[in-house]
Design a binder for these strands. Sequence first.
DNA 1: TATGAATGAGGTTTCATTCAT
DNA 2: AATGAATGAAACCTCATTCAT
Lengths: 207, 207, 207, 207
Amino acid sequence: MAQDMTRRERQAVKRRRQILEAAAQVFAEKGYHRATTRDIAEAADVAEGTIYNYFASKDDLLMGLIGELAQLDRQQAMLDEALDQDLETFIKSYLAYRLGHTGPYQRLLMGIVPELVHHPDLRDRYRRDFVQPALIMIEGHVQRRIERGQIRDIDGPIITRLLMSMLLGLQLLLIIGEPVTQDAWEHPDAVAETITGLIMDGVRRRS
Amino acid sequence: MAQDMTRRERQAVKRRRQILEAAAQVFAEKGYHRATTRDIAEAADVAEGTIYNYFASKDDLLMGLIGELAQLDRQQAMLDEALDQDLETFIKSYLAYRLGHTGPYQRLLMGIVPELVHHPDLRDRYRRDFVQPALIMIEGHVQRRIERGQIRDIDGPIITRLLMSMLLGLQLLLIIGEPVTQDAWEHPDAVAETITGLIMDGVRRRS
Amino acid sequence: MAQDMTRRERQAVKRRRQILEAAAQVFAEKGYHRATTRDIAEAADVAEGTIYNYFASKDDLLMGLIGELAQLDRQQAMLDEALDQDLETFIKSYLAYRLGHTGPYQRLLMGIVPELVHHPDLRDRYRRDFVQPALIMIEGHVQRRIERGQIRDIDGPIITRLLMSMLLGLQLLLIIGEPVTQDAWEHPDAVAETITGLIMDGVRRRS
Amino acid sequence: MAQDMTRRERQAVKRRRQILEAAAQVFAEKGYHRATTRDIAEAADVAEGTIYNYFASKDDLLMGLIGELAQLDRQQAMLDEALDQDLETFIKSYLAYRLGHTGPYQRLLMGIVPELVHHPDLRDRYRRDFVQPALIMIEGHVQRRIERGQIRDIDGPIITRLLMSMLLGLQLLLIIGEPVTQDAWEHPDAVAETITGLIMDGVRRRS
DNA sequence: TATGAATGAGGTTTCATTCAT
DNA sequence: AATGAATGAAACCTCATTCAT
């Protein structure tokens, strides 16, 4: 599709991305409210006014970031390919994927999540564009595993939410700098192993 | 200790608390940045200037709230009392406590947590005074359960974080209005049951 | 009533007037759109922020000016007292009053009238608070003159509007600096005489 | 003269007029200050930059419009043709012309007049090119009527201003939505009759 | 100690104008 | 000559903080 664009259009797409990336960076650094449009303009190396040629408002920048988040998230393909994997292998590789991509992904998250609490529009869009699709995919995957008899017949939708909650929560612990979690992150494989153990077998002691 | 204070001192302590409670309420309602000192003064029924006789700045109010938060949190007693309960009963009642309908405490958290992300001082203090003790307590609890042979010998610290993560994540899903989660919340007991099932036995199918 | 006010209240009233007078002056000088809040603040010798302790917005200043206009206008008493005057004497003295007060009054008008065209709220309030009361009073006066047989039995309401139109229009001509009108204004008595002549007897030549 | 131009020059003249017409329309709609160059460019279906190939600035557009205004105004021809009409017939038809339902010309005036007040250059040019000629013509007309003995020997220049004032004032009353005036406007002939009556015979009761 | 009016720095946003293409 | 993205000055307004009373 890119080759159908005029040079001007390509320039515009590039400029938009440039501003969005600057916004992501500044929001991650300072948080939404402490980030000024001047900060963003400087980070993007454009004039303040230029921002408003691409985004209607500062809020709209936040909305735009959701789009970036959604694009960053390439779970679907991964989940589909993974359906035939051994269950434990799958969980591990999925966790590795989710928790490994926290680099650029988490920076965006740090800029966005705090705002969700008091920003209804953003919240709705975050849910619709980002969380909901992921949930649906995971849920479908879980369901098929149940049908194949690979996992026991439990409440798929709820388990799906619990799994996603755990991931979201871990990211929050990382964000607030919980030290044990941070240290554990040094060995993502070991973390994945522990999580897999919890998900597969729970904590009950068996004789 | 209160009896050592002069009446004037007691008055000051009371006034301080009055302002802090107003701040908590307003922060919970609007979030830190959208809450104005005027809002807080009105909620506390004092003049704006009066706030500055008790707190150095708006940020200082946030700092002050951490102390209140820690005091508000009654986990310790609960966890201690619960040690002798049957494991499944305990998990259920703890979940009921944590997820119990968003009280003033939760709302306050929603007002403050966003600030934690980008406010190092506050974050450190929050972690030190509030999250870390809770984690340590849960961790100790888990450890003692392991020692008693009630749960299998797994990585206690990590499991502790995973459990807390799950709770944080669930709260996030609720905040953003994820519909399945919200619907499930209509029957908290059933949710607690499913979570307990996951934590206790995992998802593996057993013959 | 002023003696019932606390000193603070008196101060507030005074400050409000001070800002409003500055706004009137700056609007008169530069017009609404070219007048900046900074200009007004400087003219009022207060900080920009102070303006917003007394007025919700720049628009609100305009609204506030209407109130001043209405207060400036003391027609009622005058008209009532004048009822018993000889008709020609009355017209002359009324004209002298209206056209003589153009000093401070016209400066306000210059700031406000231009905005009426594209500012519905202001327009409605101007009509309601200022034009309408004046029209009603004049109309009543005209009616009573008709009943007394002092003027012929013509369409009172319309004549009232025509008279007021003439006054409003003259002020507009003055505003745009029409030279003949300005020169004529040097001799207000002569103008009043001509207007009285027109109103009383029209232009028709009589044998 | 048009045949002396190259095609390029004719094109330029046409483009200039196209922009000027767009400006007239947008100024009429929103008023000068609320009209943006972007609005004008869109209405003219050219790029914003193009405007500046034909006009030095936004203010210059206003200056350009004066010329158009003068051309739009067809009073002269009308007045000349009307000289031989019966006086009352003339007044009625002139009123019908002036007060005739607010055409594009009136709307344009509404967009520009506010600027006259505080824009000396524009005001002078407007007065010189537009108001003054009209006044002179009406004045001449009145003068000739006097000479013909159709109206009594009164102060022509002043009466001229009074008549125009009345018209301006009526337009103001209409602009601000004065209800009686608006209602009366439903029957323009009756209004014209009343005005004619006032102008011809005044209000004095005659035995 | 309590007050709240005054402050003014700084925020977001608009828009006339420029200029490389 | 036409374009329209980029510019950045400047507008309005908010609000944490101060300080005279």
